[in-house]
């Protein structure tokens, strides 16, 4: 086995002094180590006070999520040598949770949020039999709708670099919202969809900025950002009326009409109040000042738009 030399730059936190700092560890180790094995090596050979959380070492218990080279991931799943940049590998605790010591963060606030969304199935008596002898059947195509989402190991890598949380520390979080989606899709669940959507709305689905960082972080390939879009779709379809659902309906309608979103009227429709109207009036004023012709204010259907509309209709129906 080949040995390689590099620097492990670890962000540490000392709770006694309430102080965070970076410490460099020079190592010469086998090139086959995972980041977790690297941390164990440092703890064993250099500094026994180095603190981190881990258990299964096989990407299943969800204990060892941290920020490795600016991106969240599982220490036990990532090869250290792939992450060495200019001789350095940078290891930090998850960003949106408070450190307890070194790389160990306090997961409680994120678990509290998970509890808020009813992360369990309330059996629907119409589907789930009330005796232990008969089975509750789920068809493969029904399970396929949330199969991926059941792989979540609650590691919080997604949560640890979520942008919505940087804007609102009370934001529910990606894996929590994926959980809402997972139970809405479960045919055995008896909770009303409206109720589940309400739980996902409070500091939830509308605050997501669709940055894709949760998907980039997830060791299981779960795309919470896409689940959130699905939750928004469901919210709209169960009749939720708000700035976001008005925007979504208008967006599709104008794209269907012209091929493009009508950004001039979007604020007015979405806000649906005086403020939105003012935004449109100001835009029109600005356009005139800039010498734009009226027909340049918004999108016009392109040539062959009928064929385009047919295309969209067919995609909706047949794909």
């Amino acid at each position: 086995m080949k040995k390689i030399k590099y620097t492990a730059r670890i962000k540490r936190y000392n709770p006694e002094e309430d102080r965070s700092y970076y410490q460099d560890f020079e190592v010469e180790v086998e090139d086959s180590l995972t980041v977790l094995e690297l941390l164990m090596y440092i703890k064993d050979k250099i500094d026994p006070t180095l603190t981190f959380r881990a258990f299964c070492r096989s990407a299943i218990c969800g204990s060892c999520a941290m920020i490795i080279n600016n991106r969240a991931g599982l220490a036990c799943k990532i090869q250290a040598k792939d992450k060495i940049k200019n001789g350095v590998i940078k290891i930090e605790p998850l960003k949106t949770l408070k450190p307890i010591r070194d790389l160990v963060v306090d997961q409680e606030p994120a678990f509290e949020k998970l509890k808020k969304i009813k992360p369990y199935l309330e059996p629907d008596p119409k589907v789930v039999p009330d005796n232990l002898k008969s089975e509750s059947l789920v068809l493969p195509e029904e399970f396929a709708r949330y199969d991926k989402q059941t792989d979540c190991i609650l590691c919080m890598a997604c949560y640890g670099q979520c942008n919505a949380l940087k804007g609102d520390s009370e934001y529910l979080g990606p894996f929590q919202l994926t959980k809402v989606f997972r139970f809405i899709m479960d045919t055995r669940d008896g909770v009303d969809v409206e109720e589940r959507i309400k739980l996902a709305e409070d500091h939830g689905i509308w605050e997501c900025v669709q940055c894709q960082m949760c998907f980039a972080a997830c060791p299981k390939g779960i795309s919470s950002c896409d689940d959130i879009l699905e939750l928004r779709r469901i919210a709209k379809d169960v009749g939720e009326e708000n700035i976001a659902t008005r925007r979504a309906k208008f967006w599709f309608a104008t794209v269907f009409e012209t091929g493009q979103i009508d950004k001039l009227h979007l604020p007015e429709v979405a806000f649906s109040d005086e403020k939105g109207k003012k935004i449109r009036e100001n835009m029109e004023k600005e356009f005139k000042q800039r010498g734009l012709r009226e027909d340049e204010f918004g999108p016009k259907p392109f040539e062959g738009i009928e064929k385009f509309r047919n295309f969209i209709k067919k995609i909706e129906k047949e794909l």
């Binding site: 669709q210 896409d226 879009l229 699905e230 928004r232 779709r233 709209k236 659902t245 925007r247 979504a248 309906k249 967006w251 599709f252 794209v255 091929g259 493009q260 979103i261 385009f308 969209i312 995609i315 909706e316 794909l319």
Partner: peptide
């Protein structure tokens, strides 16, 4: 036409 803008998914992601 519009790429969907992360919004048309809220109508139908197949579109």
């Amino acid at each position: 036409a519009c790429c969907g803008g992360g919004v048309i998914d809220e109508t139908n992601k197949k579109i």
